[in-house]
Amino acid sequence: MAEEIIEAPMVGKIIEVMAKVGEKIAEGDVVCTLESMKMENPLVSPIDGTVKEIKVAAGDTVQAGAEIAVIE
């Protein structure tokens, strides 16, 4: 099965992580919320699948391109 890595689209701070490892997730479901430029932006899953790995926790600051989660 194809693996899809969610990356941070820009520098920011993780506010909340909604998804849990092992959980089933549908395309468009929110994985976590990233705050950048005073805006809270939901990061969503690009595919239907299972959350294989989450690489961030709430409060983390992430750079653009940082890996957030792996969905397969």
Partner: peptide
């Protein structure tokens, strides 16, 4: 700046949740 960018970002995500137009 950056209000207009935020408007575009909001509208973009509403139309296509995968889209991230802010930058």
């Amino acid at each position: 700046v950056p209000m207009a960018s935020r408007v575009v970002q909001r509208m973009g995500q509403k139309e296509n949740p995968r889209n991230f137009l802010l930058m």
